[in-house]
């Protein structure tokens, strides 16, 4: 956020550091989800359905069969059967909300990270080639990018997702993993902006004197590419990444919320938000099922947006909206 200016730089950097720490912490917690003393996110315990935070007893953890290796085994060795319990309450099937949030973060962040990475690789490659080669290749690549970005991608993605579900229904033998399909489809729709940014940057780098100098000194094209172009592209690629991650993160949540993304028994934050929403009635006040996923979204998106703004501001101080005089 370049908002809240003009503040002392130090305060901005402190918030940026906090945001980074939060995201890193979230990533670690999510990546090591099976290690923590949490209940099974899918274990249905109807007697304690819709228990408010902290009120229900922790259920004994008896994952069957007991795993011998991996994080789950380590967890067993460290904590035994003990679990924190549903301190954030339970859902309508008595499942621990805290555990579902942690395991949901795992899915949501994985999709966001992998899809961004994939779109980054795709976009950078094409943008790099188009910018470096120039000429007809450049013109046509960018033409294609323009045409594709005029399409209503979200609707096409939903259409494709529904088709794939049809395929899965008709041919259960094909074993389509919904999450990886989602990941690929989202990645395929988000590389356009990356390609544009990278192409523009390469085209301007090409005009600079140090590239000319490298060419004149007889460096091979490959060496120029690796040693001079790529390092200079890094900042703009990071900008593209920081812009893409929250967008993709939201897109997955959006699809899951509509019931077109991640499906049970997997959990994702979008699914949890949906569950919370569906639990709302005039009779029950199941606030925890709404508030905790909402807080998770809010904090994560705030952190992502703040870091993204901060990074692009650092690259281009002119864009900073700090009053000049």
């Amino acid at each position: 956020m370049r908002a809240l200016s003009p503040r002392p730089r130090r305060a901005v950097d402190l918030v940026a550091r906090l945001a980074l720490a939060y995201l890193a912490g979230l990533a670690i917690v999510a990546a090591l989800a099976p290690l923590w003393p949490l209940e099974d996110p899918a274990a249905v315990k109807l007697p304690r359905a819709l228990a408010p935070p902290g009120s229900a007893p922790a259920a004994a953890v008896l994952a069957e069969p007991i795993p011998r290796t991996g994080l789950a085994a380590l967890r067993r060795r460290l904590f035994g059967d003990w679990s924190i319990g549903p301190c954030l309450g339970t859902d309508d099937l008595g499942r621990c909300l805290l555990s579902r949030l942690v395991f949901g973060a795992r899915v949501s962040l994985t999709v966001a990270a992998l899809a961004s990475l994939l779109s980054l690789v795709l976009g950078t490659t094409l943008g790099l080639l188009a910018g470096w080669r120039g000429g007809a290749f450049d013109r046509w690549t960018m033409r294609v990018v323009d045409v594709i970005s005029a399409l209503p991608m979200v609707f096409l993605v939903i259409f494709v997702v529904s088709l794939l579900r049809g395929v899965r229904n008709a041919r259960p033998d094909m074993d389509i993993d919904q999450i990886s399909v989602l990941l690929f489809v989202i990645a395929l729709t988000s590389w356009l902006s990356v390609a544009r940014l990278v192409r523009a940057e390469v085209a301007s780098l090409k005009q600079r004197a140090f590239i000319d100098a490298a060419v004149l000194s007889g460096l091979s094209e490959r060496a120029i590419f690796l040693r001079h172009l790529l390092p200079n592209l890094l900042p703009i690629v990071i900008v593209a990444l920081t812009l893409n991650v929250p967008r993709i993160f939201l897109f997955e949540a959006f699809l899951s919320f509509l019931g077109l993304g991640v499906e049970a028994p997997s959990v994702s934050w979008g699914l949890l938000a949906r569950q919370g929403y569906d639990s709302l009635t005039a009779v029950h006040a199941t606030w925890w099922m709404v508030v905790f996923p909402a807080a998770a979204f809010l904090l994560t998106l705030l952190a992502m947006n703040f870091l993204g703004d901060r990074w692009s501001e650092r690259l281009d101080p002119r864009q900073s909206s700090e009053p000049v005089a």
């Binding site: 956020m1 908002a3 809240l4 939201l250 949540a253 959006f254 919320f257 979008g270 938000a273 949906r274 919370g276 929403y277 709302l280 006040a285 606030w287 709404v290 508030v291 996923p293 909402a294 979204f297 809010l298 998106l301 705030l302 947006n305 703040f306």
Partner: peptide, 24 residues
């Protein structure tokens, strides 16, 4: 600062989360 804070919060609350928070 206040307006920017509201804007930052609004930007980080997607429609589907907002609905759940406003309905109750």
């Amino acid at each position: 600062a206040a307006a920017s804070l509201v804007a930052a919060l609004g930007q980080s609350l997607p429609t589907f989360v907002l609905a759940g928070l406003l309905i109750p």
